[in-house]
Design a protein around this nucleic acid. Structure first.
Length: 747
DNA sequence: GTTCTAGAAC
DNA sequence: GTTCTAGAAC
């Protein structure tokens, strides 16, 4: 037979009375289509048939006609069908879609995984030839992906599921696995990027149902109905185990282990479900990676809770920890009970702080993050989890508030409405907290100085709780009132997410000293300057000592004659000391206060033109040495080095200093702003647009000429060295690329 | 074992 | 920005 049939299907035969499903997989080679089918068919009670064009021809390459015939016949026999071929174009899918009808739901599952992942899998699969290079597989995958037409419902699909990463794929597999003969999936488009993330929410909600189709969640015991985060992760590949974990859920609620020890707390179960109360969920600060004494930390937590408990109104504080046997939770609980702190105001909870609502039924509008001083993602623990769950928007929003944080301080960040944490969990704010550090391996090590440590931890919790109360209070105050108190008038309609900014402004006016807590080490006045008040200087980024080299050179070129190639009143020109290509110059502006592109406004247009012209002059010089060079001039959206500088860089990227993805992507994604475009924008809008989303730096590596994707930098460089494809048309337009006069047209 | 990436420190 | 390096990926 030319099709794979799963074992269960034979036994059930045609008896299924429910509707059939035909899933048309859409994805490049290596995207995991066959694996998807195998995993679903391996443990599905619905009879499936997989129709694969690669194997249908019994050794020879199969045809679409063969696949169509087999699909029709399988459906006739009462089997649901996977169409396992690339199906990247509408035309390729159309004939299969036609097999649908009143008895057959036609679904698409789009495996839109990163090209480089598909490439590396394809290479592996054909690896026996030894020298089938990544480049060759890349060429195949890239060629196919260039033609992709993402499926739409109007092609005739009743449901489309988009998967962009392994997690999405696993979710979709679990979803299809869970289908028996009679249940079906909701119709519609799920998981598509761009339109907005609410579609994703649809998937998340459905997944919950699919896991436990027979259960309905009542608001009174939501906590008991949800699986524990731990067991969900461990058993994500098995529906049966998930059901099991759901049954053991009651252990998840920390209060459960309190039976008998703390009778007063029994009323908590009801309270937890009161989702209307503003709630701050916070991890224990400093006790994990910063190795702060649990005993002392618990003491401080409860002391600060007690101090703030009367100011909470109907709001609640929840200490969260991932592990059930958490020492800090039991310590804090015991101490709170001793002080008779109401369990409706403060309680502990075991769960993943990024999934409290979806998996624990605990709705928290504000969560605290145990941040690092750089306010950056990563590093593991709560910080990594929160940044990851919140998506790149959190980092961008955080940057708008502060660039770093001092121990004992916090910074409150409104979450963008596009963040999955906002959509799925109902979190409106993340408050970053930096606690004292007792770990010699981490920055700001306190050498066991617990006097200082306790002081900082008290500050941290005071600031945290105060920031939370400010956010809650803000909800009940009109923006207008706040502005009246500020003595300013809102210049544009206010969004909810901006509320807290204004609150902080007000707090700062009342108590400037406290602003240190909001803004880390930054000058309190900077916090005031952040928003719409254009009359005061805007907040500037903090530049590390290593980032001052260009600034120093620009201010005192005479002291750097060894590196400076040319000086004028407006600019200095120097070779980049770590050139990322054969020719790589920097044209540095000499204006004080012009740190980077975001500081540029219309008054700087003449300077920008001068910088560009000087760049062109030097390019012309280089053409006398090598007329085959091609140049691009532009600015980094968010430079690492202080002082506005224009990169003049040859497009060979042939340099031993170009070592990592960030290097490549900083010159080959939208992060790089072409000088000509910058001048146009400043001329017409008065400012240049910047693209400094972190995700640009981690984008897949693509050739700057043929746009092919490559699994890693060395492979890209090897390819780039020989790629002679013409440059993309977008670069050829508007003078973005500069070639020697004799060398045109480009090739 | 080697290659490569990515985070911490500066 | 780079260097160093742990550990992931191959």
């Amino acid at each position: 037979m030319d099709v794979d049939t799963d074992e269960n299907s034979n036994a059930k035969g045609k008896e299924g009375q429910g509707k059939l499903i035909m899933v048309i997989l859409v994805g490049a080679p290596g995207s995991g289509k066959s694996t998807f089918c195998e995993l679903v068919m391996g443990s599905s009670s619905r009879p499936w048939v997989r129709i694969c064009q690669d194997t249908i021809g019994n050794g020879k390459s199969g045809t679409k006609a063969q696949c169509l015939k087999s699909a029709a016949s399988a459906l006739n026999n009462g089997k649901s069908v996977f169409v396992d071929r690339c199906n990247l174009e509408i035309e390729q899918r159309a004939d299969f879609v036609k097999l649908g009808g009143p008895q057959v739901d036609v679904h698409a599952v789009v495996l839109d995984l990163p090209a480089q992942l598909c490439i590396s899998r394809s290479v592996k699969r054909t690896g026996h030839e030894g020298n089938l290079s990544g480049g060759k597989a890349a060429a195949v995958v890239n060629k196919m992906l260039q033609k992709i037409e993402l499926p739409k419902l109007n092609e005739g699909f009743t449901r489309i599921t988009f998967c962009h990463n392994e997690t999405d794929v696993q979710s979709a597999i679990d979803m299809y696995k869970s289908l028996d003969l009679h249940n079906l999936l909701p119709h519609g488009c799920f998981g598509q990027k761009n339109p907005n993330k609410k579609v994703q929410l649809g998937i998340m909600k459905f997944l919950k149902k699919a896991e436990k189709p027979s259960e309905t969640r009542s608001s009174a015991n939501t906590v008991k109905d949800s699986p524990t985060p731990q067991t969900t992760q461990e058993n994500s590949d098995s529906c049966d185990k998930k059901e099991e974990s759901a049954c053991t859920m009651s252990k998840n609620v920390d209060i459960e282990s309190e039976k008998g020890e703390c009778p007063g707390i029994r009323s908590l179960e009801d309270d937890i479900s009161q989702s209307n109360s503003p709630t701050l969920a916070f991890p224990s600060i400093s006790t994990s990676d910063f190795k702060f004494s649990h005993e002392k930390a618990a003491e401080i937590i409860v002391e600060k809770v007690e101090e703030f408990v009367d100011k909470l109104g109907n709001a609640r504080l929840v200490l969260v920890d991932l592990s059930r046997g958490s020492k800090i939770l039991s310590l804090a609980k015991a101490k709170a009970a001793k002080k008779n702190i109401s369990s409706t105001k403060f309680f502990t909870f075991v769960g993943d702080i990024t999934k409290l609502n979806s998996e624990g039924g605990l709705r928290c509008n504000v969560i605290a993050n145990a941040a690092n001083w750089r306010l950056k993602p990563g590093g593991g623990g709560v910080n990594a989890a929160i940044f990851s769950a919140a998506g790149p928007g959190l980092e961008v929003a955080t940057k708008q508030q502060a660039n770093s944080l001092q121990p004992g301080n916090v910074v409150a960040v409104p979450l963008p409405s596009t963040s999955p944490l906002f959509n799925r969990e109902g979190v409106t704010h993340v408050i970053h907290v930096l606690g004292p550090n007792m770990n010699p391996q981490r920055p700001n090590y306190l050498r066991n100085d617990y006097d200082e440590g306790c002081k900082l931890l008290r500050n941290a919790y005071s600031s945290l709780f105060q920031a939370f109360i400010s956010i809650v209070e803000d909800k009940f105050k009109s923006v207008k009132e706040i502005h009246e108190r500020l003595g300013s008038v809102p210049s544009e309609p206010q969004k909810h997410s901006e509320d807290s900014h204004h609150k902080f402004k007000r707090e700062n006016l009342q108590n400037p000293e406290r602003s240190k807590k909001w803004k880390g080490s930054q000058d309190p006045t900077e916090a005031l300057n952040q928003n719409n008040n254009k009359t005061v200087p805007k907040m500037s980024k903090h530049w590390g000592s290593w980032a001052q080299a260009l600034y120093n050179t620009a201010m005192h070129p005479e002291q750097h004659s060894d590196t400076v190639l040319e000086t004028s009143d407006d600019v200095v020109i120097l070779n980049d000391i770590y050139p990322k290509a054969r020719k790589h110059l920097l044209v540095v502006a000499r204006h004080e206060g012009l740190d980077q592109l975001t500081d540029v406004c219309r008054e700087h247009l003449p300077l920008l033109r001068t910088m560009h012209a000087v760049g062109l002059k030097w390019i012309d010089k280089f053409f006398h040495e090598d007329a085959s060079l091609v140049f691009r001039l532009g600015y980094h959206s968010a430079p690492s080095m202080r002082q506005l500088h224009l990169h003049v860089i040859s497009q060979d990227f042939d340099s031993s200093h170009l070592k990592n993805k960030k290097h490549w992507n900083s010159f080959n994604t939208d992060f790089f702003r072409d000088s000509v475009a910058v001048m146009d924008e400043v001329s017409s809008n008065g400012k240049a647009s910047i693209m400094d989303d972190e995700s640009l730096m981690s984008m897949e590596l693509r050739c700057n000429r043929c746009r092919s994707a490559h699994p890693n930098l060395p492979k890209l460089k090897a390819h780039s060295f020989k790629c002679q494809a013409p440059f993309p048309s977008a670069l050829l337009e508007g003078g973005r690329l500069v070639t020697a006069p004799s060398n045109a047209p480009l090739s």
